[in-house]
Design a protein around this nucleic acid. Structure first.
Length: 391
DNA sequence: GATCCACGGGAATACACGGATG
DNA sequence: CATCCGTGTATTCCCGTGGATC
């Protein structure tokens, strides 16, 4: 928490004790350095990556499991640590016995939510591996691939690329990632992370690691760890945590979203703790099924703005896509034509971020319009949007 | 000049309905 | 009664354009 946030918190709370001490700690989109309760998965991943510690490249692999099971938490923490580790030993010590082998293996974490195009994926990997800046425009995708190939050849060390969030509506599928990364170099292997069971996934590699949803008790541990860092003492009591954990049914994302929403409500109302009514409201704000906020916040700037405009709208302006588009376009948040906003709204509906609910009765002429319904926790989104907007 | 990407606009298609037609 | 047609919307699809960068 930086100074600005501290001051803002005091200003809002008029100096009274506030239930929230660190929004980041209870945010459903932030991952702690040490994920809670996923030790066994971590062990299995380390087993798989073991060859890397001897300079050999692990095989391609697929990590899969349902939303909110801590997949991203595990891989982002793991790859951050591994990357830091190999960065320390950037100067390989050549030994007589291992001249042919790369001395160390690098680890790169790439989120395909933010690297949606072929170009962007190559860019993300190359950028992580290179000191100097990689051009974002003006060079072709093929050229970027060969640059990456050259880079790997020049260093004579392998790299394991983790591609998180594979196979979502608007992200690369696992097979697309394979098609992009496999031809680059034999000294590159990948660990894809996604939700779909390997049986349903095309080109899933032999090595697979499954992550199951949290059991209720494990989820309570997660919530306890998070709230003890982010909330004041006794802001949320044990019974309340249990209630959220039960309600969330193993999904840490949804649970944290509810807690975040509840805590924020409590803070705004000036309460020193999270009351049951805050908690109820926090849970009510999370639709089921719920699109993860990570996905929503990873959308392109203008899409986020459109969504922000949308969730700030009077509900009766959401009764038709056209009307919603018009209202959002009239807002200060976006500088787009109504036609473009409308297209974007359809796009977001197609991706499942918002839902179109067709009307039962059709009065008047023509095809009846459909109402729009966000599929993510709107109040949490607004708060996170505001927190990230001024950075 | 090449390249990536987001916009913008509009054409094509789908859908809902009432009324006409076979 | 089943089907077709016209009209008005909603929705999807496609492609040219232009900014920014190399």
């Amino acid at each position: 928490m930086n100074l600005e946030e501290r001051i803002e918190r005091r200003r809002r709370s008029d100096g009274r004790p506030t239930p929230v001490t660190d929004y980041d700690a209870i945010s459903p989109v932030s991952h702690p350095d040490e994920p809670t309760g996923r030790g066994p998965v971590l062990e299995r991943l380390l087993d798989h990556l073991d060859p890397a510690f001897e300079g050999r490249l692990p095989e391609n692999a697929y990590l899969w499991g349902p939303k909110g099971a801590g997949k991203s938490a595990v891989v982002s923490a793991l790859f951050a640590h591994l990357a830091a580790l190999t960065r320390q030993s950037r100067s390989p010590i050549p030994t007589a016995t291992r001249v042919e082998r790369p001395a160390v293996v690098d680890f790169v974490y790439a989120d395909v939510r933010t690297a949606e195009s072929d170009f962007a994926l190559y860019h993300a990997v190359l950028d992580d591996l290179t000191e100097d800046r990689v051009p974002e425009q003006g060079v072709g995708t093929a050229q970027l691939r060969s640059r990456l190939r050259d880079r790997l050849a020049a260093r004579d060390r392998g790299v394991v690329v983790c591609t998180d969030h594979v196979g979502e509506p608007e992200t690369h599928s696992l097979s697309a990632v394979a098609d992009l990364l496999d031809p680059v170099s034999p000294s590159l292997s990948w660990l894809a992370v996604g939700r779909r069971p390997p049986a349903e996934v095309e080109a899933a590699p032999e090595v697979r690691v499954e992550v199951e949803a949290y059991r209720r008790h494990a989820l309570m541990d997660v919530l306890t760890a998070r709230t003890s860092r982010g909330l004041g003492r006794h802001a949320l009591v044990h019974d309340q945590l249990r209630e959220v954990a039960t309600w969330a049914d193993g999904d840490a994302h949804d649970a944290l979203a509810a807690v975040f929403g509840a805590a924020d409500r409590a803070a705004r109302s000036g309460a020193s703790g999270v009351a049951d009514e805050h908690l109820e409201a926090g849970m009510a704000d999370v639709p089921r099924p719920c699109v993860s906020l990570g996905r929503v916040l990873a959308l392109a700037e203008n899409r986020r703005r459109v969504l922000y405009g949308l969730v700030s709208l009077d509900p009766d302006r959401m009764q038709s896509v056209g009307a919603a588009a018009e209202s959002v376009a009239a807002t200060e948040v976006v500088d787009l034509s109504a036609a473009t906003v409308e297209r974007i709204l359809y796009e977001l509906a197609e991706a499942g971020v918002i839902r179109r609910v067709s009307r039962e009765t059709s009065d008047g002429m023509g095809r009846p319009p459909s109402r729009l319904e966000p599929r993510f926790p709107t109040s949490v989104f607004r708060q996170l949007y505001a927190l990230t907007a001024n950075r």
